[in-house]
């Protein structure tokens, strides 16, 4: 049942990205370009998502188990450390170069655009690089 939910959540998530305009890198760059002709649409994507998710997450935070009996796995970290901030700044630079973040990258991967395949391949390489560096650090 949980696997079925996960699949449908992914499907709804992907449809949402396509409908919202997030899957169009040109539109994302139009949102990130404050000094040009600014397209504020994507602020509404985040606004709409949070408006819907606020109450469910407020409920989830007070539970130890999900509705289907799985442990509630919410992040426990609280520190505002250098890794969080530097990592997010680096992510934003990449986002600003191409107008693609991880979700939309996956959502447009099978639409036949070589650009999406190249971006996602590089993104996976970046993630593997992170893992390799972490392993080395903890050695």
């Amino acid at each position: 049942m949980r696997k079925l939910i996960a699949f449908f959540a992914g499907l709804i998530f992907g449809i949402g990205l396509l409908l919202a305009g997030m899957a169009n890198p040109a539109k994302v760059l139009g949102f990130l370009d404050l000094a040009g002709a600014w397209d504020p649409s994507l602020a509404l994507v985040m606004g709409g998502a949070i408006a819907v998710a606020l109450l469910p997450f407020a409920w989830a935070r007070r539970q130890s188990r999900s509705l289907l009996g799985a442990p509630m796995q919410l992040p426990q970290k609280r520190e505002l450390d250098r890794r969080l901030i530097l990592g997010s700044l680096v992510f934003g630079i990449g986002w600003g170069i191409a107008g693609i973040c991880p979700g939309p990258g996956v959502a447009i991967l099978l639409t036949g655009h070589w650009q999406a395949m190249l971006f996602v391949a590089a993104m996976l390489a970046g993630m593997l690089l992170f893992t390799a560096l972490e392993r080395q650090r903890n050695h």
Binding site: P25, S88, G99, I100, A122, L128
Partner: peptide, 28 residues
């Protein structure tokens, strides 16, 4: 779905997004 970035930009962007989101523990 319209791209405005060439192959080199996409490559660099993907790498930065991949490594940045993992260090920063999350994305959009």
């Amino acid at each position: 779905i319209e791209f405005q970035t060439g192959w080199l930009g996409l490559l660099v962007a993907g790498l930065l997004v991949g490594i940045g989101t993992r260090y920063g523990s999350g994305c959009t």
